[in-house]
C-alpha cells in the first residue's frame, strides 16, 4: 500500500562494474553527488543538494549504510530536514542489482517517506479521500439548493 519511488534500468555492463559506480565516492560524485560514502554497514555519510525552502528542506541528506551485499544489494537511509532538528524527510534507498541478458538490471526503490513528520503515511492511507471529495462536490454541485454566487 505504501507509495514508493521505483526506477528500473538496464545497463549493458556487468554488476561488478555498476556496483563500483554505486559504492566508490569518486565515481558517485560523477553522476549522483559528492559524498563521504564508504561501503560499510553502519557508516554514516552525507549528500548535499539544492535546498527547497517550500518543503522545509535545507539540501543536506543524511544517510547511513544499513545493508550491503557486494554486487547485489545496497540499502541506506535517506533523511533530511530544515537543519534545525526538524526532519521533513525520513526514507530509505534500496539498490538491487541482478545479472540479466549479459548486463545488469538495476532497481532503485526509494521508499518510506514516513518521515514527513509522519504526514505522508497519513496522506497515503487516505488517498481514497480524493474520490470521496470529488463525488461529494459533484453531488453538491448538482443540488438545487446550492447558491451559486455564495
Amino acid at each position: 500500500m505504501e507509495r514508493a519511488i521505483r526506477h528500473t534500468w538496464f545497463f549493458p555492463h556487468s554488476p561488478e562494474r555498476v556496483w563500483e559506480y554505486l559504492t566508490k565516492p569518486e565515481l558517485l560524485a560523477q553522476w549522483l553527488m559528492e559524498s563521504n560514502f564508504r561501503p560499510e554497514v553502519g557508516h554514516r555519510f552525507q549528500f548535499h543538494t539544492k535546498p527547497i525552502v517550500k518543503f522545509n528542506f535545507d539540501g543536506n541528506i543524511y544517510c547511513q549504510v544499513l545493508e550491503l551485499e557486494p554486487n547485489k544489494k545496497l540499502v541506506y537511509s535517506w533523511k533530511g530536514g530544515n537543519g534545525k532538528g526538524e526532519v521533513s524527510l525520513d526514507s530509505l534507498v534500496t539498490w538491487t542489482l541482478a545479472a540479466k541478458n549479459g548486463g545488469t538490471e538495476l532497481q532503485l526503490v526509494h521508499s518510506g517517506f514516513k518521515g514527513f513528520r509522519n504526514f505522508m503515511s497519513y496522506i497515503i492511507m487516505n488517498q481514497g479521500w480524493l474520490k470521496i471529495a470529488k463525488r461529494f462536490l459533484k453531488n453538491l454541485n448538482q443540488s438545487a439548493h446550492v447558491p451559486t454566487g455564495a
Binding site: 519511488i5 553522476w31 518543503f55 532503485l108 526509494h110 504526514f119
Partner: peptide, 23 residues
C-alpha cells in the same frame, strides 16, 4: 505534498540517466 515525492522521483530519473551515459 505529492510534489515533494515527485521531486525525488524526477531527481532519481535524471541521476540514473547520467549514470547510464557515464557507464
Amino acid at each position: 505534498l505529492q510534489q515533494w515525492i515527485g521531486y525525488f522521483d524526477s531527481f532519481w530519473a535524471s541521476k540514473l540517466k547520467k549514470l547510464e551515459a557515464l557507464l
